[in-house]
Design a binder for these strands. Structure first.
Length: 110
DNA sequence: CGGTTGACCAAGT
DNA sequence: GACTTGGCCAACC
């Protein structure tokens, strides 16, 4: 249990625990971290210094939408889109920027 | 320390 | 269903 790290470090560690073929939400992460800073989690993802270690593409909104980062027009948007395709392979189907059977793929810690 | 921002959420319009 | 408002919390200036 490493809690001496910064908030974002804990976020990454928790996100790392998400199994393959599953997704989680900012809310789940934040609440599991003992806070409600959903947005802070998002900021940590935006920073995302642990690209492959932290599957930010596996994090979605509570509505089942991929989030503002998938359709992002930034430079790294293509990277994410590629990850979305990978999610498709992981049995996570994305339809109209929404996850099919969202709750089914959702992985809540604990 | 205070104001702004952010990959959010929930509820209301 | 899309947009707006208020609220939450952390990071940045």
């Amino acid at each position: 249990m490493k809690q001496n790290n910064s908030f974002n470090e804990r976020t990454y560690d928790l996100l790392k625990k998400v199994p393959k073929g599953k997704v989680t939400t900012y809310k789940a992460l934040a609440e599991k971290l003992g806070t409600k800073a959903y947005r802070a989690v998002g900021q940590a993802m935006r920073c995302n210094p642990y690209a492959p270690k932290v599957p930010c593409h596996r994090v979605v909104s509570s509505d089942g939408s991929i989030g503002g980062f998938s359709g992002n027009k930034n430079s790294n948007s293509k990277e994410v889109k590629r990850k979305i395709r990978m999610l498709n392979k992981e049995s996570i189907k994305i339809k109209n920027n929404r996850i099919v059977d969202f709750e089914e793929k959702l992985f809540y810690f604990g």
